[in-house]
Design a protein around this nucleic acid. Structure first.
Lengths: 155, 155
DNA sequence: GCTTGACCTCAACTTAAGTCGAGGAATTAC
DNA sequence: GTAATTCCTCGACTTAAGTTGAGGTCAAGC
């Protein structure tokens, strides 16, 4: 029942394990919206600790800041999120995780079809199927095996 | 039975779906070692197509260039790799994939323990366990929840 | 035999997710 | 009331995995 005084960025960093610079960075990306003190210093709510911790977890799972931002934008901005809010978001989260796991499992099945056949031949190998190609991380190549069918010789 | 004439970089690009610049980049990273023509142009072997395709697949699975380089370094440099070579490497590969999947499944189990409990409280949430934290991709934060136990208040 | 088109090198730019440091104000501690 | 912390902004730097462009050569078609 104590008055929620608000936390300085250093406190938040200590409690979440994030660095101060990362927290500032996240503010810049719109993931948290601390208020400011008269002197211009950031003042965080206790619920921001949860928001930030959520970011940490989501990153573990492999979401980008952008994706996390999407998820978090469904949380009420100035009201402290309820249990129901978190449950909703965690469920969305679970779905993403499911998808990523399924993708890797598909890849594994394909790979299993390949081991021992020594193929990796462009004609037959399932793994060359673009399917989920480029779902990855980052900047990768823009031009991917769109046109494997063009290849007509054996390797 | 045709004489293996060697391929120009453009041909290799067309056959693998990689960009020319990416192939040059991979050479720089030591993933392929084309020879040079009298005029200084790269000349690739047919087996290099396989090598490069392998890179593509490995990246799909989430390996870094560095990791792929490790795997490929176990291939014979100047002899065209045999079926046995590829099988060995694909198996190593399968293990990595297994690990990654297992990691995601562990995370999912933890998340399941969380959904509905509305926790995400630093005290209890399994997901805050550093365990495999920072296994991720790239440059992330260096300072992670090494010391969650320090946190003593509820969020 | 010359004109395209493919290739060469090298340097600079890109994105994501931050980190680091400089130079300067705000708080807290005594 | 001042010293020591902590915080502020802003710009530059980092890594991974490439892309893009400039300025210049090589090779192939006719």
């Amino acid at each position: 029942m104590a008055v929620p005084k608000g936390l300085a960025i250093g406190d938040v960093a200590a409690r979440t394990g994030l660095s101060v610079s990362a927290i500032r960075f996240y503010e810049g990306r719109g993931l948290v919206h601390p208020e400011r003190s008269s002197g211009g210093q950031r003042v965080f709510l206790r619920s921001d600790i949860r928001r930030l911790s959520f970011i940490l977890i989501a990153q573990q799972i492999g979401l980008t800041i952008e994706e996390i931002s999407q998820l978090l934008s469904s949380l009420p901005e100035r009201r402290t999120p309820t249990k129901r809010d978190w449950t909703r978001i965690s469920t969305a989260f679970r779905h993403m995780l499911d998808e990523r796991i399924a993708l890797m499992e598909r890849t594994r099945r394909k790979l299993d079809g390949c081991i021992g056949c020594g193929c990796l031949s462009l004609k037959k190998c399932q793994l060359y199927n673009p399917e989920d190609r480029a779902r990855g991380l980052g900047t990768g190549p823009r031009f991917l095996l769109e046109d494997v069918s063009v290849v007509s010789t054996e390797t």
